[in-house]
Design a protein around this nucleic acid. Sequence first.
DNA 1: GCTAAATAGCGTAGCAGGTACGCTATATGC
DNA 2: GCATATAGCGTACCTGCTACGCTATTTAGC
Lengths: 246, 246
Amino acid sequence: MSELPSDVALMWRLREGSRRGPKPSLTVEDITRSAIELADAEGLAAVSMARVAERLGNSTMALYRHVKSKDELLVLMSDAALERPEPMPEGIDWRTALTFWAEGVMVAIRKHRWYSKLPISGPPAGPNNLAWFDAALGALQDTGLPEEAKVGVVMGLMTYVHGEIRLSLDLAAGFADNPSAFSTYGAVLARVVDSRQLPALARVLDAGVFDTVGAFDEESDEDFDFGLQLYLDGVERFIERVCQGS
Amino acid sequence: MSELPSDVALMWRLREGSRRGPKPSLTVEDITRSAIELADAEGLAAVSMARVAERLGNSTMALYRHVKSKDELLVLMSDAALERPEPMPEGIDWRTALTFWAEGVMVAIRKHRWYSKLPISGPPAGPNNLAWFDAALGALQDTGLPEEAKVGVVMGLMTYVHGEIRLSLDLAAGFADNPSAFSTYGAVLARVVDSRQLPALARVLDAGVFDTVGAFDEESDEDFDFGLQLYLDGVERFIERVCQGS
DNA sequence: GCTAAATAGCGTAGCAGGTACGCTATATGC
DNA sequence: GCATATAGCGTACCTGCTACGCTATTTAGC
C-alpha cells in the first residue's frame, strides 16, 4: 500500500475528494487541456506556466495548487494528448492488426506535433498510454508467443514507431523553419562529401537519391511503412521460429 | 555556389582565415569540446552559455563571436560527440557488419548520455554523422540493393537504433532520479490495470513479466539486440525478395 | 451555530538563462 | 600611419520557473 507517484494518481484521477477549503475554480484536466491547446497552436516552446494560466484567466501561481511542477504538467500532457486507440477490427491477423495499430499511433501523434519533443520520464503509466500498450499486446493474442516475448516485440515496435514519428515531425519542423536548408541538402552534401573518404555515400549521391529531397513531405508515410514492414517481417520469422512446434 | 548554412560550415571548418583584428583566444572547437565535457559531467541541463564560458575563462558574450546561438552550439556538439566509426572488419557479410555498426553507435552514444536529448534539427550534415552514415551504407555494398533501397534500410535502422538508445538512456536517467518509481512499476500497474478494460496487459502482469523490472540495468543490451535482430531479419527477407533474380 | 484547520488563489520576489547592443582594444590591409 | 574589421566583454532586458507568505473561503467537529 505504498504511495502512488503523484503524476500517476493525477492521470488516473485518484485524488480522493478532500473537503475543507474553498471550491477549486480549476481542475487538473482544465490545465492539461489548456496546455495542450496552446502547444497545438504555438508549439511546445510557447507552453509556459504563465501562458497557460493566462488562457484560463488565472494567475501563474494558481496552477501550482493543482500541479507540482511544470515537468509534472508535461507528463500529464503526454498521456492526455493520446486519445484512446480505436477498437481493433475483429478477425484480422496479427500483422494486419499491428499495422493498423502503428498507423493509429501515427495519426494520433500527428494531431499534436510537439508530442515527440516531450522528455521521456519513465515507462508508460497513464491510462491512454497503457490502452495503446494493451491494444498492441492484444494484436499478438493468437500468435502463441509467451507473454514476455510479446512485450519484447511490442517494445521494439513502439521504439521504432515513436522514433520514426519523432524524426519525421522534427524534420518537418526544421523544414518549416528553413526550407532552403532542405532543398539544398543534396547540393550541400555534394560540396562536402569526398568520394575517397565516404565512398558509399558518394555512390548514393551519384545515383541522385537526394536530388528530390526538396519534395519533402511530412505526410509521406513511405519511409514509415517501409521500415515498419521490415520489422514485421522480422516478427513473422520470429513467430515461426518460436511456435514451430505448435 | 550558394552559401552553406553556418553550422555546416563550422562543422567542416570551412571558414577561410580572415586577417584583420585581434587574434582569437578561443576557437569553435574549444567551445564545443568544453560544452561536451560539461554535459558529460553534469548533464545537458548544466550546459549554459555562462557555464561554458566560465570553464574557458572567458565571458559569456565572448562565445557569441564564434557561435551564432546556443542552438548552433548544440548542433556542433551533436556532431562532435560522435567519434569516427571504427573501420569495418574486412570480409564480413552485411548482417554481421550492420550488427557491428549498431553496437558501435550504441557504444559511441553511451559515452555521452545527454546525446539523445538533443533536438533533431535536420538531416545529418556533419562529418562524423556522415561518416557513420557512410559506414552503414558501405555494409550493404555487396547486397546488390539499389542505392535508394540502401538508404531506406539504413534510415530505418538509424531510427530504430537511436530510438532504442534514447529510450534506454532516458529510462536510466529516470531510474537514477527516482529508483523507487521503477521498482514499484509492476505494483503500480497492478493497482491501476483493470483486467476487463486492459485484458492483454493484465495477462502480461499475471505472467509476472514486470515483477523483475526492479533489476533495471542500463547496460543490458538484451532488448536492443532483440529488436535489432528482428529488423535485420526483415532486411534479409527484403534482400532475398529484391535480388532474387541475381 | 461557532471555531479551528485546511485549502484556493495570488502578489512578490529571487534566480537563472539567452542574447541585443555598444564600447574598447587590437591586429591587419592599403 | 590610418582606416577598418574583429575579439572580448559589461550592461541590460526579457522570459521562465517557483518558494514563500498572505488572504479569503469552506467545512469538520464540537
